[in-house]
Design a binder for these strands. Structure first.
Lengths: 365, 365
DNA sequence: AATTAGCACTCTAAAAAAGGGGTTGACAAA
DNA sequence: TTTGTCAACCCCTTTTTTAGAGTGCTAATT
């Protein structure tokens, strides 16, 4: 009777687990002992493998959907796979360059960087891509300007440190001429540049209440702007999801119901946003960049058969957003993780590029 | 021996056709002669109805998916139904008020009116809602402003007559101070206000080439702006689709393949945009407001089992956009048509509200 | 002429039955 | 500790049955 060294036993166990995960990801069919004996571990018999698989099942890594008929990985197995078994895949330099180029082209061409990024993610991953930006509330302001449209009507334009642009119409009963508006804008910018929206609001309220001379005559407008800034939507988060259709592609009708549920959740937005927000806070706390949430690790039960691979975007010391993909639980984690990581770094670079030193403003040349 | 008056015969035929359409929309099952005899025309036998249905089939209004097993409406039948048989449904005053209120609330709260509108459409119709805006290219400009962000970097903000706001970053090698930028902005606005983007571009090119004194020192920037304005994306159309998930709701797995195809097309955007663009041009030409495209009437074969109900949005004399829903061919046309019509008028009102008289600009108070 | 009743036929959708393939657990042997 | 073997199991697929609904036709009726 031979005694197996524990390391060897463990290694073999892991090999089997890895094989099951990879095989299942590929074929989407329960994996049986025979298959493994023929494919991965040719030097042992299927019976041995059966024994080991029974152990793995007991430990909660595998389970059988039916009494007889192969086993499939549990969420725990995927987790183990992602954490220990998946060697972090480096993206081929060629592929990197290709993406980089495409990213540049798209992002420069179009105003909406975020939408484009989520599309790119979807395209390259074959799953749905998303980009989520935090509440503007918590972001630092780069500028706040007013564009006069008509007497009593103007457009407020807010640019954050990360380059996000928000705009909203402002109506006011007071007629206000463009020159006066510029002064207001200049004053405001001097005061609030680099502050968060929340801070800015407080500062402005104070000025208004104390009747600051710079605000004489435009207090009405300033009040209106503040009001608009307070609306949750103005400072709300933003979520772009693209390529949900892709999830249907590699999917048979089995998961039809799952998919339906998922779409409901994503389109409803509310809960999905909250989920992402929490995830972002977590990542901010732990200072981790890449996060993988597998199946039921997600708070939403509707996502129990899906996984989310995401990365945080930091501008300066602040996490201002998150991006990633949402795809079937049985996805090619290694590839997708590398991809998300890479595109994340591109977007981050792009955002950091925005925060440049502001310069002096003066009314005359 | 009775002789049937032709009007009576025709009326009966129509009654049957209407019944088949409505019944099929409701149950999604082929309709047989017996059913009609029991439901719609109780004073005739099923045999008679069979005869009439045979006629209708010959004329191309009905067809049998299988040799025996009831008939279902063809696209032609739906067309006839929409054109002649569906009495235009008025929306209940109560429902109108409800929508109006909700619309107001949403649209005012959030900067992005278009996204909100398409969401509202989706919610109320139970299908996917879309809003499409024409190439900015063809829209009149209300204002074009520049917000300085950093030396050599600014944000261009373009507001069109219909209230659409586009923005894009402009980089320039020349350092340019804010005050100078304001002068440029003022000059440009005086020249191009009320023109289309295409016209504006031409005008500016001329000034630049002729070395107009107002542009001295900022020609570089102006050139850069023009270049950015030329990019197809800057002036591109915009398409928002929301609620595709809803299409899956009332759908069994039968149409799974159809749905997949549809999503592919919509997410790909290119061809779907073109389709909408053509539709918009058609409606502009015919000065019709409401359009219904049934199944294969749509150019895209992927949409052969779907219908599009859309309405044009006009600002002044120009069609600037379109909105509507895209849903299963077997939808409740009457209800949806009324809905699209109504929301269309709301959006239109909202857009027209924007084009107000601009006012004089002066550098000092 | 127009409608109806009756009938044989067709076809589908759902249910039931049969077959095949792959897997498992158990146990004895190596 | 591993292996070979085997009965039992269960799913998936295909085939067969069955029930039901609809049709077209013809002859009878109004």
């Amino acid at each position: 009777m031979r005694i197996l060294k524990p390391e060897v036993a463990k290694a073999r166990k892991e090999k089997i687990l890895r094989w099951v995960v990879q095989q299942y990801v590929e074929t989407r069919r329960p994996v049986g002992s025979q298959m493994i004996a023929e494919g991965a571990l040719k030097d042992v018999s299927s019976a041995t493998i059966r024994n080991i698989m029974a152990e793995l099942e007991e430990e909660g890594y595998l389970y059988q959907p039916h009494t007889s008929g192969g086993r499939i990985p549990t969420d725990k197995a995927y987790r183990y796979y992602v954490d220990y078994l998946a060697n972090v895949q480096k993206m081929a330099a060629k592929e990197r360059a290709q993406i980089e180029q495409q990213y540049d082209a798209r992002v420069n061409e179009v105003d909406n960087m975020l939408v484009q990024t989520s599309r790119l993610l979807a395209m390259l991953s074959g799953a749905a891509g998303f980009v989520y930006t935090a509440q503007v509330e918590d972001q630092r302001i780069q500028r706040l300007d007013f564009i006069p449209l008509a007497p009593g009507m103007m457009l407020a334009v807010l640019v954050t440190e990360s380059g996000a642009v928000k705009h909203w119409p402002v109506r006011s009963n007071t007629l206000i001429n463009p020159a006066r508006l510029r002064l207001l804008s200049r004053f405001i910018n001097e005061e609030i540049q680099g502050r968060t929206l929340a801070e800015a609001r407080q500062i402005l309220w104070q000025y208004i209440h104390s009747g600051h001379r710079e605000l004489a005559g435009v207090a009405d407008v300033a009040t209106q702007v503040l009001k608009d800034m307070e609306r949750p939507q103005t400072g709300g988060d933003e979520l772009h999801v693209e390529g949900i259709g892709r999830l249907l592609e590699n999917t048979t009708e089995e998961d039809y119901e799952d998919l339906k549920q998922m779409m409901r959740v994503v389109e409803e937005r509310e809960r999905f946003s909250n989920l992402l927000n929490e995830k972002m806070a977590d990542m901010d706390r732990s200072q981790k960049k890449l996060n993988v949430s597998i199946g039921s690790e997600n708070e939403l039960k509707e996502l129990k058969n899906l996984s989310i691979v995401s990365t945080a975007c930091r501008v300066g010391d602040r996490t201002v957003g998150m991006l990633g993909i949402i795809g079937p639980k049985h996805m090619e984690y290694t590839r997708v993780m590398a991809l998300v990581n890479f595109i994340g770094s591109l977007l981050e670079a792009s955002m950091n590029n925005w925060s440049a030193l502001p310069f002096e403003d003066s009314e005359n040349e």
